[in-house]
Computed example of a mutant assay.
Amino acid sequence: MVVPGASAGSLGTWNWRRIVGTMFPLLVVLSIIVLWAGITLENAEEMLEQYAILAVMVPTMVDMGGNLGAILSSRLSTRFHLGTTELDPRDRILWANVGAIFALAATIFTGLAIGAYYLGILIGSPLPFVSLLTISLISGMSVAVIAVVFSFAATYGSYRLGIDPDDTTIPIVTNVVDVFGMVIFIGVSALVLPL
């Protein structure tokens, strides 16, 4: 499938060999990087057993961070394809998208703390609400910053290298956010809670 008006070597050309050639090595590298998140989680097993509600928060924390990055990456990729952005710092729409990601992150991670607090009471693993809110917001907003930075870097880098950002940004951003999200969450939890 070729986008009308696109040249044979442009981003508008769909070629499965090019996509596989680009994505396979990238996915291998990203899979190795994600092992770090698993090792971090395994090393935190004692803390997660002591505070069971944290184990419940982990999937949501990591998943939501990746989703925030995927949202921004998709919006940036679309704007590149439409030719409506060049990552100009004066671009108000660009800053509105970043602001929306941070507002969504603050809402989601506050909701996560509230849900975890009440679920902790229900399952008999309560933690003080202030502790859960601190862990959730510091971790979540840090993950949002990482998601924004890597969304911009992956989208712009792919575009500059002549690779369709739609093929690369979401795998890069979600994997990187998974790793850093896990490391940050475990680190913040260890600092906030007594072990």
Rank of each mutant, 00 (worst) to 15 (best):
89 P>K: 05
99 G>W: 10
183 V>R: 04
87 L>E: 08
80 F>V: 15
83 G>L: 07
109 F>H: 08
30 L>S: 03
133 L>M: 12
30 L>E: 03
79 R>D: 04
7 S>R: 10
94 L>Q: 11
138 I>D: 01
62 V>F: 03
97 N>S: 07
186 I>A: 01
140 G>Y: 05
81 H>W: 00
92 R>V: 04
158 S>D: 11
17 R>D: 10
190 A>K: 14
82 L>W: 06
164 D>N: 14
12 G>A: 01
168 T>D: 04
87 L>I: 12
6 A>F: 05
7 S>N: 07
174 T>D: 02
168 T>S: 14
121 I>Q: 13
97 N>H: 07
98 V>T: 10
166 D>A: 15
13 T>F: 09
69 G>L: 11
97 N>D: 09
30 L>W: 06
189 S>P: 04
117 Y>D: 00
120 G>P: 04
136 S>C: 02
19 I>D: 07
66 G>H: 03
125 S>T: 15
90 R>I: 00
46 E>R: 15
108 I>G: 03
157 G>Y: 09
95 W>K: 12
183 V>S: 04
116 A>L: 06
170 I>P: 00
168 T>H: 07
46 E>G: 08
36 W>T: 15
48 L>Y: 13
78 T>E: 01
11 L>S: 08
144 A>C: 11
128 P>Q: 06
173 V>S: 09
34 V>K: 11
167 D>W: 13
117 Y>Q: 00
98 V>A: 05
91 D>G: 10
144 A>M: 12
179 V>S: 00
148 V>E: 01
18 R>D: 07
121 I>D: 06
42 E>C: 00
15 N>T: 09
50 Q>R: 15
120 G>Y: 02
117 Y>A: 02
67 N>M: 14
120 G>T: 02
2 V>K: 12
168 T>Y: 06
170 I>E: 00
157 G>V: 02
169 T>C: 13
63 D>C: 04
25 P>N: 04
103 A>D: 00
166 D>N: 14
99 G>C: 03
31 S>Q: 09
78 T>W: 02
147 A>V: 08
136 S>A: 13
50 Q>S: 05
166 D>F: 12
39 I>Q: 06
63 D>A: 15
68 L>H: 06
183 V>C: 03
19 I>L: 02
60 T>F: 14
194 P>K: 14
56 V>C: 02
22 T>R: 04
155 T>Q: 03
101 I>R: 05
9 G>I: 12
175 N>P: 00
147 A>F: 07
95 W>I: 13
189 S>L: 02
39 I>K: 10
16 W>K: 08
76 L>C: 01
147 A>M: 10
5 G>R: 14
176 V>G: 01
83 G>Y: 11
100 A>L: 05
142 S>F: 05
49 E>Q: 14
51 Y>L: 01
36 W>V: 15
189 S>G: 07
